[in-house]
Design a protein around this nucleic acid. Structure first.
Lengths: 334, 334
DNA sequence: CTGAAAGCGCTTACAG
DNA sequence: CTGAAAGCGCTTACAG
């Protein structure tokens, strides 16, 4: 059943059926009702691909996520989705599973006009290339970013947040502080490491190179790297984990080693996912305004799609240090 | 830049360019190389929407998820994705946030030919309607199903699994057993409740109606309903929660009430998400073969898309009871 | 307010 | 192995 069939049944031209569907005000009430009746009777659905092909619009936003499993990204997604749906766009997700090839495949969807715009929650491509694409297609980065790129970006200031959470540990009296990093080939991994180093150095604390262990975002890697740290001759008394997942893994490793958090080892995470306040002891962490990041990113993308100029390219959202049991020695001592 | 422009630059017809891209074997090596050179030089990307319009194929699979946040569904998704990608399909996700209207919107994408097929991880539509659609479009249900529908479906046997986990509690000596259900308007909520009732009745145990409390899948609802149960004059000594999320909420509620799991109240969940083995005490649960469910569902969908007949419509996957600390009294007593 | 007609960018059956 | 031509199902500028 196509539009011309409907037109015949309703004794009008295809153009009129099209108008009834896309621009009903242009059609007289009488005709409109006649056409709608036929449409409903035969349950006609327009072939959207044909429409997209004709109008050059898909009304689809593609969001690329490095890991759909992650509690962190799902909150960001919600922010994106809500703004998109309110503006008549549908959101589809591409999960890369941290694979840059799959990231590239999704970016190609944009180049091939299968979406009107794209939010990248992971940006591990060549910078020049991505900038080149962003010049021609609506695209915004969120959470992850590229050093000194001019692609519109929404994120927190990861360096300063990492510094803040590390300084919290220092203020608790720790001097032997380790850091379980994210993947160092990802900018976030590097930036949080940098913040950690800045805090240590500004307090004249030494960083034992064995105290820097690289993880891969997962609970398991946090667990394993923590076991490594505990096996050192002089284990740290405090650990800053790149994210809450790894922080929780680290807590589990400490417990499994018959040690106490925070008494033997204090642990802090990053992101403030829901589980951070559920696990015991509750995890000290940096709260990222996940929903707002998504919301802001989608708003910027709408601006780009509508050809509006952006006031600025880089939006730095406010983070917050949330101190909980996993790093507060005092409260836990009777 | 369109195909005819490339054709001109390469001194061939558009048809030849098209063949180079979609069916290179039909073109002589010489011509092919000449064309590829131009394509690379101008970085030509075919307009995929035009191709889709022409071929009536999108090579896209739409997966509809009730809650993208859920650790359970993300594993199912992985199974779907892996099979899809291996077969040249791209997976896009639609998150309904448990809203049946949004479910319907995504289903409309299929009707409008914006995807070649669809896996529904939530099926809360009118049965006749969904069956009607499934007759004309490739569609499979996974995890959630519809009573007595003939839409291809992959899931576990929720009734028997719920019976199994309840009987485990009975075997531990419990008689006062409560059930925090899922939403009763969802088939899974009803089926697991039924399994619970079957187990209780077949052991001649009474079900106090106050022992049935309805949750909404979330940690918070598990927490709140558990507090309600604990406030009863005669609180239960064991609780079967619809899923692990709610089970973990229930554990938290018991702890916050200064009671012990499993000594004061045993708790069991359902799904075996990763966190179930991390939380303390570890949560007894039913393992669903999440990845395999997704894999199987996608395989069935490929069959449907390729017009192959299915050997059968209903696939029941194997579940497994995983007994952990949250329900095993003995091991925890010194 | 409505219709006839052109055209969006591809693919493919047909002919040579 | 290659090209000319038709056509996929819509939308919209134009004319009336």
């Amino acid at each position: 059943m196509k539009m011309s069939d409907v037109a015949k049944l309703a004794n009008v031209s295809p153009a009129t059926v099209s108008r009834v569907l896309s621009n009903p005000d242009l059609v007289s009430k009488e005709t409109r009702e006649k056409v709608m009746e036929v449409i409903n009777k035969v349950n006609y659905k327009p072939h959207i691909v044909a429409r997209q092909f004709r109008t050059k619009e898909t009304k689809i936003i593609l969001v690329v996520v490095p890991d759909i499993t992650s509690a962190f990204f799902s909150r960001v997604l919600r922010g994106i989705e809500h703004v998109a749906v309110k503006n008549g766009y549908q959101v589809i997700l591409g999960d890369t599973e941290n694979d840059t090839d799959r990231e590239l495949e999704y970016i190609n969807l944009l180049l091939q006009k299968q979406a009107d715009g794209m939010v990248l929650l992971t940006a591990r491509q060549d910078k020049e290339k991505l900038e080149e694409i962003a010049e021609h297609f609506p695209m915004v980065l969120a959470c992850e970013y590229m050093d000194g790129s001019n692609v519109p970006t929404v994120s927190i200031d990861n360096i300063s947040s990492a510094r803040k959470v590390t300084e919290h540990l220092i203020q608790q009296g720790h001097t032997k502080i380790a850091h379980i990093t994210g993947p160092i080939n990802v900018v976030l991994g590097r930036d949080r490491l940098r913040g950690f180093q800045q805090a240590m150095m500004s307090h004249d604390l030494e960083i034992d190179s064995a105290y820097i262990q690289e993880g891969d975002f997962t609970f398991e890697s946090g667990y394993n790297q923590m076991l490594k740290l505990l096996a050192l001759e002089a284990p740290p008394t405090a650990v800053f984990a790149f994210n809450d997942e790894m922080g929780m893994g680290a807590i589990k490793a400490v417990k499994d080693s018959n040690l106490l958090v925070p008494n033997d080892v204090a642990i802090v995470g990053f992101d403030n996912i829901k589980m951070a306040s559920v696990i015991e002891p509750n995890l000290t962490t940096i709260d990222q305004p996940k929903y707002e990041i998504g919301k802001k990113a989608m708003e910027l993308l709408l601006n780009l799609i509508n050809g509006e100029a952006l006031q600025k390219k880089r939006f730095v959202m406010k983070d917050e240090l949330i101190v909980r049991e996993s790093s507060e020695l005092v409260k836990n001592m009777p």
